[in-house]
Design a protein around this nucleic acid. Structure first.
Lengths: 145, 145
DNA sequence: ATATTTCATATATATAAACTAGGAATTAGA
DNA sequence: TCTAATTCCTAGTTTATATATATGAAATAT
């Protein structure tokens, strides 16, 4: 029951973009360096975000990425659903076979559905802006005081 | 973000034991057959439950397993924590390194902690008895009416 | 004694996660 | 128009984890 690096890296990239917004495009090179994440690996995660129009990009020299929307318009839920696939605790496709009623699987299904519901509700309630704010908080506590 | 077969099989074994309680020991052979799960694989899951005193067992002929407590005294949460390891969405041990403040990881940590909280609260709220009741419900809907 | 059962440990297979690599396509700026 | 910088595309590699199988020892009711 884990969130993979794919989802976590996607979030960190978006957080990084939110924190370094300057009106222009930000090169992946810089994000990868700041976040200490393999640039090549990030390149594989980006199409997922791009396909859902979470980013604006330009190629070529001086190219890079910026957020397509303001940070309060991204939820952690949507980002993780994109990168992790459905955030469902079990994949039940193919498991609904004759005899399932007797095995307890059917009764368990409602447990998994309920779990999926609370997970998604929680993750949908948090925006990128919330995380940036929290981040700022940490920064102040550690360095300014 | 998945619950593995290990956790689901453990739950199904315990549900099976709850439904077939008869005061005596129930052979794994029968459970495996009813649940259509590899007996050998179940044998590997059992020590986890046994170590936490969730089962009573005897070896030898006519041996087998029974629940150590009544079904309402097992929560789905405790069973999954045993079989899945901590039901934490990310493993952060070793990730707390210098520079973590700037990467957004620290701010994300509170997201994961919150997620962990809602997941555990939900799973702790469901007992084995709840599932058996739900199971009974299904059975009645499908066969008796 | 014997058949039955759990217990312990080792091995195998398949799948997915987590990267790495090479180069094509695009673009700003000289 | 050339060059350097950058994203985009696709394939391959490595490592870890999930999901089992296999073999046989230890225990026990009959």
């Amino acid at each position: 029951m884990k969130i993979s690096t794919k989802g976590r890296y996607a979030l960190r990239m978006l957080i990084d973009l939110a924190e370094h917004q300057n009106g222009g495009y930000i090169a992946l090179k810089d994000i990868a360096k700041r976040q200490n994440i393999s640039k090549k690996y990030l390149e594989q995660i980006i199409p997922i975000l791009n396909g859902a129009d979470l980013l604006r990009t330009t190629r070529g020299a001086q190219g890079g990425y910026m957020l397509a929307k303001t940070p309060e318009n991204y939820t952690v839920g949507e980002i993780l659903r994109l990168t992790e696939g459905r955030i469902s605790p079990v994949d039940l496709s193919g498991e609904i076979t004759p005899g399932i009623e007797e095995t307890g699987e059917l009764a368990l299904m409602s447990v998994w559905q309920g779990l999926s519901r609370v997970v998604n509700e929680y993750l949908n309630s948090i925006t990128l802006q919330d995380i940036v704010d929290e981040q700022q908080q940490h920064y102040m506590n550690n360095y300014v005081i």
